[in-house]
Design a protein around this nucleic acid. Structure first.
Lengths: 215, 215
DNA sequence: TAGATTGTTAATCGATTAACAATC
DNA sequence: TAGATTGTTAATCGATTAACAATC
């Protein structure tokens, strides 16, 4: 049942196309050619056409792409035409920051609950979303269909918690802990390693200074 | 003065090597071969050797790599042997979450101040770090050498703020706003687009369900 | 019909993996 | 010296770019 595998590189670009198309849509642009989009996005027109043609012919010769149509098609490809029930495990600053992002809800990611070990947070709410004790998590997962769990926990507890989530049927984990998770391969993991991102930044600063011999 | 350019793909892997080596160091491992490391990290030994040899011969035939030495060398490559003065522009949940990360300080990223438009936050502190009004930012930048600014603002204000930062001498921006910044090319930008990460996750969920024809 | 622009094939470029001589 | 493992060259694989025929 599997179709030709799409490369990770292509998938990583899709959300950016989606963002640009959304902005075009808002500013009332109806059609756009791969060439014009390529100039705005600073990528080659060839790449845009190749990327899109992985999923189908969304354009029309001599015309270009209909912005609204393409926007909707990419939404479908990315799975943004569905809704996902999500929980946040770890209600520290980062977990609460995520819970406050209204934008996720608009894209169909519904944040149902936060969980934390800290009993002092128990019963509090963030933007109306209840914080529960982590002891209640297994039972909660049995009773509610949760598609995605965001892991915003210290490294030390992250792996164990990820296993617990997987055992209780969570199929996708958005991992903010600074560690790699070892889970059955049908569990989808998307990592956000902030400290690694910051290190890339400092690499570039260092390289820049080296190149400009600011010894 | 520029040496052979190192590919982005290599740079992205370095922080992960660094993390694994740090863990090995903590658990008292003195030496490791590319082969053993490759098994732990789930990459090829060939790739590890190629990656490292972009920067020099850190190993020894017949022996492998000295963990501590390699760890320190990678730190130097990544610029973690220096300290950076950092500010956070936007003291909402995400900004505060970043300010609370003690781990960054340990790696040499010193968070000096937070800035926000909201006067109600003015004078408050996060982990001892003062929140100032954004009006005071230009003057502050003139008087203090700031290497990195984290942008944790709504999209609407992010571009303008980035320009202001660049004009006042900030050379590197860690951008959390959902937009691409247009800055002079000597300003280094590292993007963290959380919603794009989440979309990649939902793509993978959708694809998985499609492949297992859970129609 | 003429012009524009896609979809797609072919060419190029770059990154990953394999292989092995060098050497500790 | 024999064994292990790097550093590095060569082979392969995959991704990007260029080119152009198809077609709106």
């Amino acid at each position: 049942m599997e179709e030709k595998e799409i490369s990770r590189a292509v998938i990583k670009r899709l959300p950016r196309y989606y963002r640009y198309l959304g902005e075009l849509l808002e500013s009332g642009v109806e059609r756009i050619s791969s060439n014009e989009l390529s100039e705005r996005m600073q990528v080659t027109a060839s790449q845009i056409r190749q990327d899109l043609n992985n999923f189908g012919g969304f354009g029309q010769q001599g015309y270009g792409y209909n912005v609204k149509f393409l926007y909707q098609e990419i939404a479908k490809i990315l799975g943004l035409d569905k809704t996902y029930n999500m929980i946040i495990v770890g209600a520290g600053n980062l977990g609460q920051a995520l819970a406050n992002y209204v934008k996720f809800e608009k894209s169909g990611f519904l944040i149902k609950k936060l969980f934390d070990v800290n009993p002092r947070l128990h019963g509090m709410t963030v933007r109306g979303i209840e914080i529960r004790l982590i002891d209640e998590l297994p039972e909660y997962l049995q009773e509610n269909e949760i598609h995605i769990a965001a892991l915003t926990l210290p490294k030390a507890n992250a792996r164990e918690m990820a296993e617990l989530l997987a055992e209780n049927g969570v199929k996708a984990i958005w991992n903010f802990a600074h560690t790699d998770l070892h889970l059955p391969e049908d569990v989808i993991v998307e990592n956000v390693h902030l400290s690694e991102s910051l290190m890339q930044l400092s690499y570039n600063i260092s390289r820049y200074e080296r190149d400009h011999n600011k010894k």
